[in-house]
Amino acid sequence: MHVLVCIKQVPADPSAVKVDRKTNTLIREGIPVVVNPFDLFAIEEALRLRERMSSSGQKGRVSVITMGPPQARSALEEAIAMGADDAVLLSDRAFAGADTLATAYTLSRGIRRIEDSTGAKVDIVICGRQSTDGDTAQVGPELAEMLGIPHLVRVRKVESLTRESIRVERIADGGYDVIESCLPVLLTVEKGINQPRVPSLRGLMRARKAGIPVWGAQELGVEAQQVGLAGSPTRVIRVFSPERQRRAEMLTGSPEAVARLLVDRLMTAM
């Protein structure tokens, strides 16, 4: 079974990120970077799925992919040090300035190429719930659509896994759903689904020497206008925190009184 994790390198301190007032893009140069914290949970979950498979006699493989500048290799090294089998870096000047759509598209092409090389579908794609810099939580679902597979977001626990299906707990408003999907599937995972392991020294040494292929627009066979800034329809006009608009109000009293109150409210609202 092949599990693939999408990881993003983000600033270590998200509050240190400045927005370029002219272009409304993020200024990412010259600040310390880490693996997006959510993605560490994604890597750990993939490793645990592999362990689950091997304890039931199946062979598992964990691959990691990122789209980013050349220095994003260090994020992939971290994943290998934790125990991932292999990694691919998608990097090209043409990919710069990608919005979530262009990011998801580029990732989908990278995954396709991996599938072409193995001759088999990736069974499970795992993303973090969101990044700590871009924060949109859109890349996972968009990527699933492009790959033509179902997605389950905000997974907080994997209950069971078979060759054909997976059953998870997914956080929902005010509770959680237990939901089952066929494979292949894409999951986005919550913090707290596990405790990410620290890398081992052997892993770190292996990572330092690991051959990590770098694929650009040419290797992925994509047109320049489909990727990066050119392939990004998003135009950021303003950045702000949305106000919470849904409000709940508790009506109290006897059932009859509450029913009357509710009818009155509905009538006035109409």
């Binding site: 392991r197 620290v198 890398p199 081992s200 020294l201 052997r202």
Partner: peptide
Amino acid sequence: RVLGESDLFGV
């Protein structure tokens, strides 16, 4: 346990 998994006992 973490120190063990990290290989540090064996340096």
